[in-house]
Computed example of a mutant assay.
Amino acid sequence: MLQEEQLSGKVLDHLGLIASVIDKIGLIEKVDKYLPVSAKYGAKIMMGQRVAAMIQNGLGFMNDRLYMFSAFLENKPVDRLFGPDVTADHFNRPSAKIYSVPTRG
Rank of each mutant, 00 (worst) to 15 (best):
A19T: 15
K44N: 11
I45D: 00
H90L: 04
A88H: 13
P77I: 10
G48A: 07
A53G: 14
M1T: 15
N63V: 11
I22K: 00
G42Y: 06
F91L: 04
V11I: 14
M54R: 11
Y99Q: 02
S8E: 06
V51Y: 01
M1H: 05
V11T: 09
K97R: 12
E74S: 13
A52R: 06
A43E: 00
M1Q: 06
K33W: 03
D23S: 07
G16Q: 08
K76D: 05
V11H: 09
S100A: 09
V86G: 03
M1Y: 08
S38W: 12
I22M: 06
P36Q: 04
V21A: 02
I98V: 11
L35C: 08
I28V: 15
P94Q: 07
P84R: 11
L17C: 01
K24I: 12
V21S: 01
G58M: 03
Y41L: 05
I98A: 02
K10A: 15
D64Y: 12
I22C: 00
A96C: 06
K30W: 04
V37I: 13
Q56A: 09
N57M: 13
N92P: 00
R50Q: 13
E4R: 00
H90P: 01
G60A: 10
M68F: 09
P36M: 02
S20I: 03
I25F: 08
K33M: 03
L12C: 10
D89T: 14
L81I: 15
A53I: 08
V101P: 01
L12H: 05
A52N: 07
Q3S: 09
F91R: 00
L59F: 14
D23F: 05
L27Q: 03
K40H: 02
I98S: 05
S8Q: 07
M46H: 01
F61V: 10
V101L: 05
L73H: 01
R65Y: 15
